[in-house]
Design a protein around this nucleic acid. Structure first.
Length: 784
DNA sequence: GGAGGCCTCGGAAGG
DNA sequence: CGAGGCCTCC
């Protein structure tokens, strides 16, 4: 690694990279080189002699961790081998496999995916004789998930008057009970759901000081990507891990927070500085991705949000084309207009299919786009369909592997005990489940001791169960003897699974058989090269001992995997179709954002709450900022929805977009409605109205508050709950002035340092003491 | 125990 | 309209 790598960075980026000690927060605008800063920062740490063993980098997606690993390896090479780079879930799963015994988990615990959780909840509801129309499994699970993500145990949930009141009012008083049953049942199966990986990591650090100490000292430098997406549990884990060295660097963009609906707590980003008074904040505001028109248009959209950290994204790029607006009569016409536009661009501007992306709010919108593209013979690819690992046949085979590794895995057992059919039916399983409940055993344990447990099954069934148990055990014996591929093949064959699929000569059956072969090929590759299709840490990747490449190792975090590696088909010149959520982090020369209609985008479920509406607006912001050279937005006057033709109104977001940066195409006259309040919008520090708007949103809480997933209808605790204290412009603040603060009360300014935008004041508050406040965040009023 | 008809419901989606 | 879960009938 050479020293000149810092020259690839602009001033702000370089500062963020070389400021290695102490807590820092990087607010990274769209297209501002965030990934570059993160990877260079790690490279810089290594260059400075930091042991790679002491660095932890956390991401949200496997994709992000994979690309970060690759980019760091490019700069830092072999020095990067012991870095811990991974998703929150993968890293915590890895730690919990080592330390989980302290919490009563075996190292081979199963990770339950959402389908497992749902089916378990269904079983529990059935056993409790509860109506699953009232207690919808997904709703109950959402509520449990929200509670877990906010670190409430089932006991705390049951003792919490607000939760139980809510549940009574909504006619579902048993949720607390279901929570408990669910947790105990997961335990009995030695299973953790995704939330448990966070909860248990937190509990490990909370209840085991030796563990806390160990990992605090291991992870001397912590980096967090997409910090705006963290939830409360993740935040509290980070806080504990970083408590000794406080070398924590978080990177995020509040304007791109689009996952509050699944528990992300935007409060974390606003509260971070309150928890770290000596926090350094860096802003990356120069956009390298898009034209001036696109950047300005995006800025004009996001300016409509009240909750935001002030920043001004700008670019030195060319002005470029204005945002194109297309109006269609129907969803089908919209598709045709998009396809035609792609065709024109290809012919006139020598563009390729892969230069285009069509982004939509809901998956259902892809149909009209697909039809239009097919008609014009434009190849396309849809992202985010049914994942490889969600396919039935794959899940079946994986369930065999799971049961071989962990006999107590109830969901795996129930999935495959009769696949292929071996005459062990529902009634039998029900009887076994009842006994298991009575004796507090796992299903496997009951099945193993059928005679002593008096389950009341006829001898034929008992024999069948005995055969099944013997078969699984015979596989388990070989776990450490055989390599992953050999054992997997034996299981696929001896279980009869492969034979059954082979016998099915329908096209679907054929494709299922091929999928199984593909999975086996993946396992073969793992066995031969040690390269897993699952992301791993380098120390494992470089592990040259093939004897360690056993099936249980392969399976360790397969449940954390959602999509198989994509893009290896030989023809990649295709138009990309995906939801806006899926497009986050990507960029394309020409982006289409379709379906800009009220009740679709913004979704009708969002229009009644300002928080939800602002998230939709951030989503639109994300969509527009994917574009490099050209962005086209469109809406239709009517579209099919669930089989009915409905008429549509243009989205409010179209009007919010500053018409200066937009023009209508398709020849039906301009839509120059709506004037702008904030033209000539300059830097936030000079813009009184904007900083005031922002101030209304700032939280005073030094610890982030739990925020519940709205879907679960738990108590929503967000900015509207926080005392509404309006600050004012304090740019003329002087030492000696008296000021008022929303939470600390009246105080006296003792000292000022830094300059706008990072002016920091030291203020003495009576009865509270000295506080350092960053003026751009603090809500202050000058009294005298 | 399995196939096929019936009913219900519908947001986006990471691990 | 379409997917997925459940129930019924064989």
């Amino acid at each position: 690694m050479t020293g000149d790598y810092l020259e690839h960075l602009n001033e702000a980026q370089r500062k963020a990279v070389i400021h290695t000690e102490g807590p820092i927060m990087i607010i990274a605008g769209a297209g501002s080189g965030k990934t570059r800063v993160l990877t260079y920062r790690v490279a810089h740490l290594l260059q400075m002699g930091v042991d790679s063993f002491n660095i932890l980098a956390l991401t949200f997606t496997n994709k992000a961790s994979k690309s970060m690993r690759e980019r760091i390896a490019k700069i830092a090479g072999n020095e990067a081998r012991n870095l811990w780079i991974g998703t929150f879930h993968a890293v915590f799963a890895k730690i919990l496999r080592i330390e989980g015994h302290k919490l009563g988990y075996p190292p081979n615990f199963t990770i339950y995916d959402t389908d497992d959780c749902k089916s378990l909840m269904r079983d529990i509801l059935r056993e409790q004789n509860l109506d699953d129309k009232v207690y919808k499994p997904s709703l109950v699970l959402n509520r449990i998930s929200s509670a877990k993500n906010n670190l409430y145990s089932y006991k705390e949930y049951q003792d919490n008057i607000e939760f139980t009141n809510d549940d009574h009012l909504s006619g579902k008083p048993k949720i607390g009970e279901l929570f408990e049953l669910y947790v105990k049942r997961c335990r009995k199966s030695s299973g953790m759901d995704f939330d448990d990986l966070l909860v248990n990591m937190f509990v490990l650090l909370r209840d085991h000081p030796d563990e806390l100490h160990k990992y605090q000292h291991k992870f001397k430098y912590i980096l967090v990507d997409e910090f705006q997406d963290t939830n409360y549990a993740q935040y509290m884990i980070l806080k504990r891990l970083a408590a000794v060295h406080e070398n924590i660097c978080v990177v995020g963009d509040d304007a791109q927070s689009i996952y509050a609906f699944r528990g992300a707590n935007i409060q974390n980003i606003l509260s971070f500085e309150k928890d770290y008074p000596d926090l350094n904040i860096f802003k990356l505001e120069q956009n390298y991705r898009s034209t001036k028109n696109i950047v300005s248009a995006a800025n004009s959209i996001i300016a409509n949000n009240k909750a935001q950290i002030p920043k001004e994204v700008w670019t030195e790029n060319v002005v470029g084309e204005k945002i194109k607006l297309m109006k269609a009569l129907s969803d089908n016409e919209e598709g045709n207009m998009v396809a035609n536009s792609i065709f024109d661009d290809k012919v006139n501007n020598q563009m390729h299919n892969l230069d285009f992306a069509i982004l939509y709010r809901t998956n259902a919108q892809s149909r009209a786009m697909e039809e239009a593209l097919r008609k014009m013979n434009i190849p396309y690819r849809i992202y985010g369909g049914l994942s490889f690992y969600k396919r039935k046949e794959i899940k079946d085979l994986l369930a065999y592997f799971r049961l071989v590794i962990n006999h107590h895995d109830e969901e795996a057992l129930k999935r495959i005990i009769n696949v292929p059919a071996r005459a062990i039916g529902k009634t039998t399983i029900e009887k076994i489940t009842v006994v298991a409940g009575e004796k507090d055993k796992s299903l496997w344990e009951v099945m193993e001791q059928l005679s002593s447990d008096h389950v009341g099954l006829n001898s034929g069934t008992r024999e069948k169960i005995g055969e099944f148990i013997t078969m699984i055990k015979s596989f388990s014996v070989k776990l450490k003897e055989l390599n992953a591929y050999d054992l997997a093949s034996i299981i696929a064959t001896s279980s009869g699974l492969l034979r059954e699929l082979y016998a099915d000569k329908t096209p679907e059956g054929l494709s299922r058989y091929e999928n199984i072969q593909e999975l086996l090929n993946g396992i073969k590759e793992f066995t031969e090269t040690g390269n897993s299709i699952t992301p791993r840490n380098d120390e494992e990747m470089y592990d040259d001992d093939p004897a360690k490449r056993t099936l249980d190792v392969f399976m360790q975090d397969i449940a954390l995997l959602t999509d198989a590696d994509e893009g290896d088909d030989n023809d990649n010149d295709k138009v990309s179709l995906m939801t806006i959520h899926a497009a986050k982090g990507l960029e394309f020369p020409h982006v289409f954002v379709v379906g800009l209609e009220e009740n679709l985008f913004p979704s009708q479920l969002s229009v009644n709450s300002r928080e939800d509406l602002e998230e939709e607006r951030r989503l639109f912001y994300v969509a527009v900022t994917r574009g490099e050279r050209k962005v086209t937005i469109s809406y239709a006057a009517s579209r099919y929805r669930w089989g009915n033709l409905i008429s549509c109104e243009p989205s409010r977001f179209v009007e919010e977009l500053d018409p200066e940066y937009m023009e209508e195409v398709g020849g039906r006259g301009s839509s120059g409605r709506g004037t702008r309040m904030n033209e000539n919008n300059h830097g936030w520090n000079n813009d009184f109205s904007r900083s005031k708007i922002f101030n209304k949103q700032t939280s005073f809480n030094s610890t982030p508050q739990p925020v519940f997933n709205p879907k679960g209808h738990l108590k929503k605790m967000n900015s509207s709950d926080i005392k509404n204290f309006v600050g004012e412009d304090v740019s003329n603040i002087q030492v000696g002035m008296e000021v008022e603060h929303g939470r600390f009360g009246i105080g006296k300014v003792l000292h000022l340092e830094g300059k706008n935008p990072d002016l920091k004041a030291t203020i003495f508050f009576e009865g509270i003491g000295q506080k350092q406040l960053l003026l751009k965040f603090a809500k202050l009023k000058i009294i005298s």
